[in-house]
């Protein structure tokens, strides 16, 4: 079977001065939980948006399951954006129906189970929920799918520590050797234990792609500490 994600020479330039992603070549295997790490403005979100077809690359190619980004890849990629993208007037249950209708890999039982353990009322309207709860709803939708690739853009930034643990547990419980999870974050310490591999980005360039155990074995420090050293101001 081919690699899950193959990125070649990927570049996104908003204009001559602003190159958000600069000539990245990267292959992501299946069955891994991968951290996408880098300071603000290093191009993490731009890369993620290109993986999901929300941004058109200036140059280079992306292949997911061997296919260019399109209808087929979107059916297999579960994406958590870094913002609230659900209409406020909709009820949680309506959004559930929406996902059920459009994504063949969406499991309603799993979604209902997660809503219950998170204590979210399916009858509530989105704009009646707190910011953190909205994020939980969005994460619940993503993790209720049986996708090949989960792309989570800053999934833990806005939620409380208890929810953070729940999210980590959900990602672990959802683990599937055929699927990979790509998590972008700058809160490395919180998720370090669940990561297999890390990608460091800086100024839109790929700085490092290695395993967490490699960093710990080679440098004798946590990824978090190593990150602080590499990106020290």
């Amino acid at each position: 079977m081919n690699e899950l994600v193959e990125i070649a020479g990927l570049t996104k330039a908003y204009d001559a001065q602003h190159v958000a992603v600069n000539n990245i070549t990267l292959t992501l295997p299946r069955g891994k939980i991968i951290g996408l790490l880098g300071p603000n403005g290093s191009g993490k979100t731009t890369l993620i948006k290109m993986l999901n077809g929300l941004l058109t690359p200036t140059q280079g190619t992306i292949r997911i399951n061997g296919q260019a980004v399109g209808v087929e890849t979107k059916a297999r990629v579960a994406y958590l954006p870094d913002r609230t993208y659900l209409a406020g007037a909709k009820k949680v249950s309506e959004i559930l129906n929406y996902f059920c209708d459009f994504y063949a890999d969406f499991s309603r039982e799993r979604a209902m189970g997660m809503l219950q353990s998170l204590g979210i009322d399916p009858g509530a309207r989105m704009n009646a929920l707190s910011k953190g709860t909205k994020e939980k709803v969005q994460l619940m939708l993503v993790m209720s799918r049986d996708a090949d690739l989960y792309v989570l853009d800053e999934p833990i930034a806005g939620v409380d520590p208890a929810a953070r643990d729940y999210i980590m547990r959900t990602i672990i419980n959802n683990y599937n050797p055929q699927a990979s999870v790509l998590i972008s974050t700058h809160l490395i310490g919180d998720i370090e234990q669940v990561l297999d591999e890390v990608i460091f980005m800086r100024y839109g360039c790929l700085l490092l792609y290695t395993s967490v155990d490699n960093i710990r074995a080679q440098h004798g420090k946590s990824v978090d500490a190593y990150f602080r050293e590499v990106f020290a101001c």
């Binding site: 999901n52 929300l54 913002r83």
Partner: peptide, 10 residues
């Protein structure tokens, strides 16, 4: 932002 939903549908 709402477009993030429709443009990531299969």
């Amino acid at each position: 932002d709402e477009g993030y939903l429709i443009h990531t549908l299969p």
